[in-house]
């Protein structure tokens, strides 16, 4: 039998590579439609003007609710989406933020809107310290540790007399007329959400973000490429806690009470995960789209069926179906098939 080495295939390979490169280049060339998020923001800022024409408190509440979740899901996305560490305990930082600013409000009467960044900072420091311990493990172990974290904080807050234990604390209401009572929190939440989305965009495109994405792909390789993975992961944890904590601060005053079974609820964490999965983990628009979808779906469930059991069942089902059929999420799936509308390409 003759020995014949195939040399002719080389030119075909080069041709295929060139075609592939061109395709990649086209994809990157897609200009972002920055006007869309900016217009959206402008509309949301103008929305309270509706109050001059009637009582749109419910609409404002829904937008505020969605904005708060968009901010928290985007924050979760830094750790879960970029670095690939799924946390089911992020409601802890929601609680820390809420309780920190809420206590200041209760003691000294300073609005949480003022102290929210500080609350975020406290949550970030806690996140940093917790991350030092729990980020030693990855995969399922990390997920379990995050649930344990939530359980521990729940017991601690339930038994902490200073913050009212399981009964919680009532916070003072502001003295604005009913029509305008929600508006300060509305603007605060929109500002936090917009800031968070902008920040995640900046993080994703920074050297830090690149490092996180490398960690998510292959941590050992990332480490050998000279990335200080431990520092990167812990920083990602702290940053994501920061945004969740800030949201929690404003949420407490808006709700006018602090209670462990509102803040330290696994369903809150579950929602963050769900929103990111449904929208698209690791994308910028994904958590926002996911938050809007879930809040809308939630309202639908509550409005039509009313019971919280249905809500939990629905959340679980949507999550399972999303995972099975669209593991990349809405944005991720559309982007992969090249059908992502330019208005939603925020990456």
């Amino acid at each position: 039998m003759a020995v014949s080495l195939q040399q002719s295939s080389a030119s075909a390979v080069i041709e295929a590579r060139r075609a592939h490169n061109e395709k990649l280049a086209r994809r990157a060339d897609q200009t972002r439609a920055t006007w869309f998020p900016l217009t959206l923001l402008a509309i949301l800022i103008a929305l309270p003007l509706l109050q001059f024409t009637g009582n749109y408190n419910y609409l404002l509440h829904l937008v505020l609710f969605a904005a708060s979740y968009a901010a928290m899901a985007s924050g979760w996305n830094i750790l879960g989406g970029f670095a690939g560490y799924i946390s089911l305990g992020h409601s802890v930082f929601f609680g820390i933020g809420g309780y920190f600013s809420g206590m200041i409000l209760a003691r000294y009467g300073v609005s949480t809107i003022v102290t929210a960044p500080l609350a975020g900072l406290v949550a970030a420091v806690m996140g940093y310290l917790i991350g030092l311990i729990t980020l030693k493990v990855r995969g399922p172990s990390f997920i379990i540790s995050s649930i344990a974290l939530l359980m521990i904080s729940r017991i601690l807050f339930d038994n902490w007399e200073l913050v009212g234990g399981a009964n919680g604390l009532t916070l003072p209401m502001n003295d604005l007329p009913v029509l305008w009572a929600k508006v300060p929190y509305y603007y605060a939440m929109i500002a936090i959400a917009a800031f968070t989305v902008w920040a995640t965009y900046r993080i994703k495109h920074s050297k830090f973000g690149l490092g996180l994405r490398a960690i998510s792909k292959d941590e050992i390789k990332a480490e050998s490429a000279g990335i200080n993975t431990r520092f990167y992961k812990v920083m990602a944890f702290a940053l994501s806690a920061f945004f969740v904590g800030m949201t929690g601060a404003v949420w407490g005053e808006y709700l006018t009470y602090l209670r462990p079974n509102i803040f330290l609820l696994i369903l809150v964490s579950a929602n963050l995960v769900l929103m990111c999965i449904l929208g698209g983990k690791g994308t910028i628009a994904g958590p926002v789209v996911g938050a809007i979808l879930i809040v809308a779906l939630n309202e639908l469930f509550v409005a039509t069926m009313g019971a919280s059991e249905i809500n939990i069942l629905g959340t679980g089902m949507v999550m399972a179906l999303g995972l099975i059929f669209f593991p990349l999420g809405l944005i991720g799936t559309l982007a992969k098939t090249g059908k992502l509308p330019r208005v939603l390409n925020w990456d």
Binding site: A270, L313, G314, T315, G316
Partner: peptide
Amino acid sequence: ALAMMVEGVLG
């Protein structure tokens, strides 16, 4: 997700 579904059904 399954845990939530079971909880919802039982509830």
